[in-house]
Simulated assay, not measured.
Amino acid sequence: MTDEQAAWLHAQIDEDERTALRVPEKDRTWTLDGTIRSGSSTDDVVDWVYIEGAAEHMVLNDPNRALREAGLKRRILAIHRRRADITGQPGGTFDDCCHGCGYEGDCDDPVVGNVNDCPERHALAAVYDDRPGYQEMWSQP
């Protein structure tokens, strides 16, 4: 079984990272003093923003933050993946369960029987609900 949801999520995270990396490294941290400035130089003006609150929002979501967020999302996906992908031994009863959601009971039954129903992965996918390929079923808690 292929993990279409994980592949799609990785593609979205990769696009976020590529976008952030297009900004030169010295300009990836933004500050605000009436004008958005990048890097450590006070001469590097990113752009004027005329929409109320937009400048503050941009500064709080600078490229360095986008890169940190991409790394964190990848870590979450590395934890919340198919059991068969973890064990490397497909053919088991719980191959498609979410290993990251854990197991319970005397028989160690999976908490989430199918990784595509994992609430953590649904939360990650919801961030990208406006992008092509998003599936409405991923919005379920």
Rank of each mutant, 00 (worst) to 15 (best):
G100F: 03
M1N: 07
L72F: 09
A7W: 02
D3M: 07
Q5H: 12
W48Q: 06
G88Q: 13
A84E: 12
R75V: 02
G88I: 15
D129C: 08
D62R: 13
E56V: 08
N114F: 03
R65H: 06
N116G: 12
V111N: 06
E15Y: 01
E25A: 10
G53N: 15
N61I: 05
P90W: 14
C98Q: 14
D27Y: 15
D16P: 06
G71W: 00
L124P: 11
E136R: 15
E15R: 12
E69T: 09
P90D: 06
D109L: 08
H80L: 10
I76L: 11
Q12A: 12
G88R: 13
C97A: 09
T93A: 02
D14R: 11
A11P: 01
R81N: 10
N61E: 07
R37H: 14
W48H: 10
I76F: 12
D129Q: 05
D130R: 10
L67G: 00
I86M: 04
R75K: 12
V112D: 07
L21I: 00
S40L: 13
R121M: 04
A20T: 03
D129E: 07
L60I: 00
G113L: 09
G34S: 09
D108W: 07
D108Q: 14
A11F: 01
R37G: 12
P63C: 08
E15G: 01
E136D: 08
W30I: 13
P63G: 05
L21M: 05
Y103P: 05
W30F: 12
A123E: 11
Y134F: 15
W8A: 04
L77I: 08
E56P: 01
Q89P: 02
A66R: 08
Q140G: 02
A125T: 06
W8S: 11
R37P: 06
R68I: 04
A66Y: 02
D106A: 14
C118K: 05
P63R: 11
H57S: 09
R82H: 02
I13S: 07
G102D: 10
P141C: 12
I79A: 11
Y134S: 01
T35G: 03
P63I: 06
L124R: 14
C101A: 01
T19R: 10
G53P: 03
L72G: 01
I51L: 13
A54V: 04
A54R: 15
L21P: 00
H57G: 11
G113H: 08
R68K: 08
G88T: 10
V59T: 10
W30T: 09
G100Q: 08
I86K: 14
P90N: 06
R18G: 00
C101V: 02
T42I: 07
H10P: 02
Q12I: 05
H122Y: 07
L21R: 14
E69W: 02
D14Y: 01
C98G: 10
R37K: 15
H10A: 08
T2D: 12
